[in-house]
Amino acid sequence: MILEVAILYIKPNLNSEFEKAFKDAFKDASKIIKKMKGYISHELQKCLEEDNKYILLVKWGKLEDHTIGFRESAEYQEWKSLLHDFYNPFPVVEHYTSIDLV
């Protein structure tokens, strides 16, 4: 399992609009991403220390499910059109994998 971590900085004074758009759009966006091969789950968290900072967490089966399967799809273009106008700068996206501590 791979965890995609996207740090989202929202343009000044657009937090409420972003959150509403995310909730509204995510109904559609969720339908988009949930259909993608390797998709497991997603969630959005708001930073307590920085008002315009959010983190999007998406679990994928493997790295290529996100980087190739989703990012290179027509569905990604639709996803992007729903929310990307709120971001400044463009989100930093990284991928993580679990470490077996047992």
Results as ranks from 00 to 15, higher is better:
E50M: 09
K20L: 10
V58Q: 01
I10R: 02
D65W: 01
L63R: 14
K37D: 00
N88F: 08
L101M: 15
Y87Q: 13
F18V: 11
I7K: 13
K31L: 10
K37W: 00
G69C: 07
I32E: 02
I55W: 06
K27I: 12
K62R: 15
V58S: 07
G69E: 08
I2S: 04
A25H: 02
K11A: 09
D28I: 15
K35M: 07
Y76R: 15
I2T: 09
H95N: 12
Y39E: 09
E43V: 09
W60L: 09
K37L: 01
I10N: 02
D65E: 00
A74Q: 13
N13A: 11
I10Y: 01
L14I: 04
I7C: 05
E43I: 10
V5A: 08
G61E: 09
Q77I: 10
I33M: 05
D28K: 14
K59N: 06
R71Q: 10
L82K: 09
V5R: 12
F18W: 08
H66W: 01
K20C: 03
W60K: 14
M36E: 05
D24H: 00
E17L: 11
K80L: 12
L83K: 05
I40G: 03
H84R: 13
Y54S: 03
P89E: 15
A25E: 10
V58M: 05
L82A: 07
W60D: 03
L56T: 03
R71M: 11
K31R: 14
A21G: 01
M36W: 00
E50C: 04
I7E: 11
A74D: 12
